[in-house]
């Protein structure tokens, strides 16, 4: 696994990943977030201590960074379909706790822009409905 990207690099690559999905016309983007447990200050206490306090991880002393991973789905060529060989794209970033809010604001923007396949709000329909209700 390659090194974690910086947050900025992550967003450009995430944009590319969504763009890749869009040009392909189908496919999946997976995004995962979890607490960063490796290589941080968060070290499990000794086993005896864990037994004393099984919830040791619910109250760490310092805020913990968060790991965000993004991947696409790998696909293999299959005869009879228009599927092509697609390599797995995989990258990740670490968000420090003090930059969490700013990150998620950008993250929301990136996802909103990227997930263009979802159904848009149908404004015309709504208006018609309202008119009907008023008449009734």
């Amino acid at each position: 696994m390659p090194e974690h990207l910086s947050n900025d690099e992550f967003f450009t690559k995430l944009g590319n990943l969504f763009e890749h999905n869009r040009t392909k016309g189908h496919g999946t983007v997976y995004l995962t977030q979890k607490r960063m447990t490796f290589d941080t200050s968060l070290v499990p206490p000794s086993p005896t201590k864990v037994a004393d306090d099984p919830l040791w991880d619910t109250h760490p002393e310092d805020p913990v960074p968060i790991l965000i991973r993004a991947t696409n789905n790998k696909s293999d060529k299959r005869p009879g379909t228009d599927r092509k060989d697609v390599d797995k794209i995989k990258f990740s970033t670490v968000v420090q706790s003090d930059r969490l809010d700013a990150f998620f604001v950008r993250y929301a923007e990136a996802c909103k822009a990227g997930m263009s396949g979802l159904k848009k709000r149908d404004k015309k329909k709504g208006k018609k409905d309202k008119k009907k209700k008023r008449k009734a």
């Binding site: 968060i66 969490l100 997930m115």
Partner: peptide, 25 residues
Amino acid sequence: ETAKAAEVGRLIGSLGRLGRHMAAL
């Protein structure tokens, strides 16, 4: 699960709030 584009913003917002739990903030 959802299929509505309008929900994405809100859902990512809640991911952010859950992220605060993860970060122990």
